[in-house]
Simulated scan of single mutants.
Amino acid sequence: MAVDRETPPSEITTLVGREVYSNNGVFVGEIEDLRLDLATENVTGLALHQLNQELFDQEINRSRGVIVPYRWVQAVGDIVIVNDIVERLKRPGEDESDDDVVA
């Protein structure tokens, strides 16, 4: 089920506990919490934990998790699908100037 990225589910708490996968089918993590902009009443990010160790280095895995921008969300259903950009964040030799994922 596709979702308008600007309109999160009516009960945003239903996202907590859902697994997050890239649109290539790679497990990214599990939603632990949401980042909200209270002024605009919008979801701005998904706080993930139980991270895929192959996508995130050990230092991030030892921390609480990461926040993925909500604009990366492609679909919400039984699972959440995000852009595959999350798979390319820490590849060796690539420019690591993208600071959208916060540890």
Rank of each mutant, 00 (worst) to 15 (best):
Y70R: 06
G65Q: 04
L55D: 02
I67T: 10
V82T: 05
A75K: 09
P69G: 01
E87Y: 05
V80C: 06
V82S: 03
E87K: 03
G77T: 06
A75R: 12
E59M: 10
E54W: 01
Q58H: 09
G77I: 04
N83Q: 11
I60N: 12
V68Y: 00
Q58N: 14
E59I: 02
E54S: 13
R64D: 13
V68G: 03
R71Y: 06
S63Q: 10
D84G: 07
N61L: 11
E54D: 15
Y70M: 05
I81P: 00
V66K: 03
N61R: 12
A75G: 11
I79A: 13
V68M: 11
F56W: 12
V73P: 00
V80S: 02
E54L: 08
I79W: 11
S63C: 06
V73M: 04
S63F: 01
E59A: 14
F56Y: 14
L55N: 03
L55E: 07
G65D: 02
I60V: 13
R88G: 01
W72D: 03
Q74A: 11
K90M: 14
I85P: 00
Q58P: 02
V73L: 01
F56H: 07
V76P: 02
L55W: 14
D78R: 08
I67A: 02
A75N: 08
V73E: 00
W72L: 08
E87A: 03
R62T: 15
P69N: 06
G77R: 11
E54Y: 12
I79D: 14
A75P: 01
R62L: 14
V66L: 06
A75S: 15
